[in-house]
């Protein structure tokens, strides 16, 4: 595909973009290989080594139950990345489908579907989070569903807008004139047209989801299920650290750094993609 060749070319030229992508790949890999590369076990209670500062044995120190902070951050990476990717994908699937149907069908169905979207916009995000976390519990599934529910409307609106534009294009009208089926028109002619803006939105919703999750954890609504290998996100670690910020700054510093750098890398990636894919640039 021409698009991917162009992307590859851009990446070769732009060092910031390459660095961001490499960092994301590294974090993702580290998260999913956490059980293999972690120096310690993520759970447990080690009475002998509570709250140690960073040392040769514990590079990033230990926490209030004597758990290794580096290990917890590695395990946290998979949770945070999974939340980011998972949310973005859920939202992409639901939102794109919804927007395609709404925009392509038009008329009364379109109006109705858009009113539903308006209602989702009208509900405070936080309320949705709080309620869902109470119904579903503070685990990764609950957070994925909650974040997905909030994010999909953005995709729906963008897709619908793009479909409305694409519908007016000459070749789509042509395809319709020669009697192509709806599904065919949607898949062959409209979807490729809206691919670029969706890709950019997708890239930006990953860091947004990671950020939302960490914020939720901070106010005590995020993923917190320490007995589960998928149970402690960076946000939870940072929140625990915030409670001890004065005496044990290492407990907040390292998780915070992890959150910040990862979100930053995704945002750089998103920026780069947007610039490259901007139709006005060529």
């Amino acid at each position: 595909m021409k698009l991917f060749q162009r992307l590859a070319g851009e990446f070769r030229r732009n060092r910031l973009l390459t660095a961001s992508l490499a960092f994301i790949a590294l974090v993702t890999l580290a998260g999913f290989l956490a059980p293999l590369i972690s120096p310690y076990s993520p759970g447990g209670f080690e009475e002998q080594r509570l709250l140690e500062v960073p040392s040769a044995a514990h590079w990033l120190g230990t926490d209030e139950l004597g758990r290794d902070v580096l290990t917890r951050i590695l395990y946290g990476a998979r949770v945070s990345i999974a939340v980011g990717l998972g949310t973005a994908l859920i939202a992409l699937l639901i939102g794109t489908f919804y927007g395609l149907v709404s925009g392509y069908a038009g008329g009364a169905l379109d109006s109705f579907l858009m009113r539903v979207v308006d209602i989702f916009y009208g509900l405070p995000d936080l309320l949705i989070f709080v309620l869902l976390s109470l119904f579903l519990g503070r685990n990764i599934t609950g957070v994925l569903i909650a974040l997905g529910l909030i994010t999909w409307v953005r995709f729906a609106r963008i897709t619908r807008g793009q479909v409305l534009q694409a519908k007016e294009l000459i070749y789509v009208e042509g395809a319709r004139a020669i009697g192509a089926s709806h599904v065919r028109i949607l898949l062959r002619h409209i979807l490729p047209n809206i691919f670029a803006p969706l890709l950019v939105t997708l890239t930006f919703s990953i860091p947004a989801a990671i950020l939302s999750e960490s914020t939720l954890s901070f106010i005590g609504l995020g993923i917190n299920d320490p007995y589960n290998a998928w149970g402690t996100s960076w946000g939870t670690l940072a929140q625990d650290g915030w409670r001890a910020m004065r005496t044990y700054p290492h407990l907040i510093f390292f998780p915070a750094l992890a959150i910040f750098l990862t979100i930053l890398a995704f945002n750089f990636l998103g920026n780069g993609l947007r610039d490259i894919l901007d139709p006005k640039r060529n």
Partner: peptide, 8 residues
């Protein structure tokens, strides 16, 4: 008072 600040 945050729990972990009590010892200090």
């Amino acid at each position: 008072i945050p729990t972990l600040e009590k010892p200090r």
